[in-house]
Design a protein around this nucleic acid. Structure first.
Length: 276
DNA sequence: TGCCAGGCCTTCC
DNA sequence: GGAAGGCATGGC
């Protein structure tokens, strides 16, 4: 068990259940168990203390700090956003302690391809099926969990295999994109060093990745906070609260108002509209 | 039953 | 170049 003291501005529920990640379990003691790239972790946060347990304690502190983005000054960013726009204050207040999780790019790409025209419940179901069938089994606290499959495992999954995991019509996108990653046509490491515009265009070259999916990947795996996924929830929120209709109008407003923190602003809106 | 869900691609004007 | 239609699946 690892204990981190004096952790501020963290709310695990908002961070974990706000629709960034799809594979987590809420425990009876209000802690959360999450399957990350190479291990299972349990997180419990009480009185500014974060208790971390895992089946693998190696290098655990830096891994969790990076995953939960604990070293970034969110108070500074939120104050910047709040100053730009009074109407977003309720979202910031509702979503207090929401951190942008730094996800594994491969799992994130697969997750958000599955997310198109889909519900969070169905997305979670598909990702769990894929992991159970093709991922490595890990035992933690006497329970079995399954890691998300490595690229080597993913590349052997056929269209039918994906279809059996309930991904529906997205099967072909997944097979093609995994193949593109394998032959280095899609270089997931290169994206770290690209700027946002360049990386959006790069990702959108691949079938199954449009503006929304590309934005989610860049925001959630690459921490490009100036990209902002506009989905049905955000559209509803912008229409109801601001009277702004149409994706292009929303895009223009967010860019002009929130600038390099647009992605965070949108995520707070999404969480408030969907969970609030 | 019909509509919707962290949309995108193809087809048709 | 923009608007419509189709798409797997499951919850409500």
């Amino acid at each position: 068990m690892l204990v981190l003291k004096n952790i501020c501005n963290l709310n695990l529920e908002n961070t974990i259940t706000c629709g960034q990640i799809f594979r987590f379990y809420k425990e009876e003691d209000d802690s959360y168990t999450i399957v990350i790239t190479d291990r299972v972790i349990n997180l419990k946060y009480v009185d500014n203390i974060l208790y971390i347990d895992s089946n693998n304690l190696d290098n655990l502190e830096p891994i969790v700090k990076e995953y939960l983005d604990l070293d970034r000054d969110y108070e500074f960013i939120i104050n910047k956003i709040r100053k730009k726009d009074n109407k977003i204050s309720s979202c910031l207040d509702y979503s207090i302690g929401l951190k942008m999780i730094k996800q594994d790019p491969l799992e994130c790409i697969v997750s958000y391809i599955i997310s198109q025209n889909n519900s969070v419940r169905n997305i979670s179901n598909s990702l769990n099926l894929i992991s159970e069938r093709y991922g490595e089994k890990v035992v933690f606290r006497d329970k079995s969990y399954f890691l998300f499959p490595t690229l080597d495992k993913l590349k052997n999954i056929s269209m039918e295999g994906f279809r059996e995991c309930k991904v529906g019509f997205r099967d072909k996108y997944l097979v093609n994109i995994i193949e593109s990653i394998c032959n280095n046509e899609l270089n997931i490491e290169k994206i770290y060093s690209m700027d946002s515009k360049e990386s959006l265009e790069y990702l959108m070259n691949f079938k199954g990745i449009g503006m929304k999916v590309a934005s989610c990947i860049l925001l959630f795996a690459y921490q490009k906070f100036d990209v902002y996924p506009i989905d049905t929830w955000v559209k509803k929120f912008m229409e109801n609260e601001y009277g702004i209709v149409g994706e292009e109008n929303i895009r223009k407003y967010c860019f002009e108002t929130y600038g390099k923190y647009s992605g965070l602003a949108i995520q707070y809106m999404f969480n408030t509209k969907r969970n609030g």
